[in-house]
Design a protein around this nucleic acid. Sequence first.
DNA 1: GGAATTTGTCAAGTAAGCTTACAATCATGT
DNA 2: ACATGATTGTAAGCTTACTTGACAAATTCC
Lengths: 147, 147
Amino acid sequence: MQKDLFLKLIDMDRLIFGISELCKMAGVTPRQLRYWEQKGYIKARASEGNKAREYDANAMIKAVLIKHFLDEGYTLNVAVQKIQRYMANMKIIRSIIREHFVGIEEIDGELAVNLGYFDEAKRQILYVIVKDGRSSFKLVDASIGNN
Amino acid sequence: MQKDLFLKLIDMDRLIFGISELCKMAGVTPRQLRYWEQKGYIKARASEGNKAREYDANAMIKAVLIKHFLDEGYTLNVAVQKIQRYMANMKIIRSIIREHFVGIEEIDGELAVNLGYFDEAKRQILYVIVKDGRSSFKLVDASIGNN
DNA sequence: GGAATTTGTCAAGTAAGCTTACAATCATGT
DNA sequence: ACATGATTGTAAGCTTACTTGACAAATTCC
């Protein structure tokens, strides 16, 4: 599979959500999302004129995290403070997925997910090998790997 | 971060999309999605009565793939045939993410994403270490790792 | 207790979704 | 070329959802 197509399928930063769907995923009400937006906690794209709001993965993650800390008893203000560190981490997670999920190949008839170089100097590529529904890691010499 | 909260943020199978958002992501029209649903190619949840359709990650991936092959000149029927193998692979990819993204930790002050055992017998845990925006892999002895 | 936060609710208007139907386009086969 | 089926566009009529604004009800904070 070409990498650009593959990326299109796993890149969370390409996701778009409506307010209704985001509410269901995060377990909040539309009123809450709009208020949080008004306070500057969550951004919604394309709310120009009267068009419907569009949220991205970042907003979705924010909403889920804020709701999580609200449920733990924190006030909205404190919840927003607490999610800052998590947001930075989640952004890194997404970049890791973009960076390391290089593609899908087949090695010895088994599905192999190419995660890129484990050790670039030694030219070793790290694969996730899927066998009977279970997955395990495997190092493959770059000169052997078939792409 | 607790694993259940972490999973909530990266598990693609929790995603919900409206028809409008799915159209933008896949580059198709609502008419196309409804027709593909009528033909049994794509499933939409909660279309009972007159309520709005809800799509999941599987449907989103299907739509993107079908559109991709349509753009390559294939007919709808052929495009649907061609995506079968990709769909199976994508389902595996999602399960790998669910299975292997165990959590986020800190090792020596650096962000470390725990990917689970690289070699369970040797009790070696595979980490993605993030440093200065770049990420690399690292094996850590399980007895050392701080969780 | 009083003020500020946060959320619910209602109203009125706009936009979008739904189904059905018909038309237009494209592909396939004779 | 012609006929047939597949695929998509478009329109109508209706229902639902979204938006803003305002007021009220909780809730929290000082």
